[in-house]
Amino acid sequence: MHAELSFFDLFLQASLLVKAVMLCLLGFSIASWTMIIQRSKALNKAQVQSSTFEDKFWSGADLSKLYKEISARGAVDGIESLFVAGFKEFARIRKSPDSSPQAVIDGTHRAMRVSLSREVDELETHLSFLATVGSISPYIGLFGTVWGIMNSFIALGAVQQATLSMVAPGIAEALIATAMGLFAAIPAVMAFNRFSHTVEKLENSYGNFVEEFSSILQRQSIASNRTQAQ
Results as ranks from 00 to 15, higher is better:
E4T: 08
L5A: 10
F7S: 00
F8L: 13
S15P: 04
V18L: 11
K19R: 15
K19E: 01
V21C: 14
C24M: 15
A31Y: 13
T34S: 13
I36A: 12
I37D: 00
K45T: 12
Q47A: 08
S51H: 09
S51Y: 08
S51I: 13
S51L: 09
F53I: 05
S59L: 10
L63N: 12
K65S: 12
K65E: 11
V76W: 00
D77Q: 14
I79K: 06
A85P: 08
E89H: 04
S100Y: 04
A103P: 00
I105C: 08
D106Y: 10
G107I: 09
H109C: 00
M112E: 03
V114K: 11
S117Y: 02
S117H: 10
R118N: 08
E119C: 09
L123T: 00
E124R: 14
E124V: 03
L127W: 07
F129W: 03
A131Q: 02
A131P: 01
I136C: 12
Y139V: 06
L142Q: 10
I149L: 07
S152G: 00
S152E: 01
F153M: 12
I154V: 10
A155T: 12
A155L: 13
G157Q: 10
V159C: 01
V159K: 13
Q160I: 03
L164Q: 05
L164I: 15
S165Q: 14
A172W: 03
A174S: 14
A174K: 12
L175T: 12
A177M: 03
R194C: 05
F195A: 09
S196V: 05
S196W: 02
H197E: 07
Y206K: 00
N208Y: 07
N208S: 12
F209L: 10
V210M: 13
E211N: 10
I216M: 09
Q218F: 15
S221D: 08
A223Y: 04
S224I: 02
R226E: 04
R226P: 00
T227M: 07
Q228C: 01
A229K: 13
A229D: 07
Q230H: 05
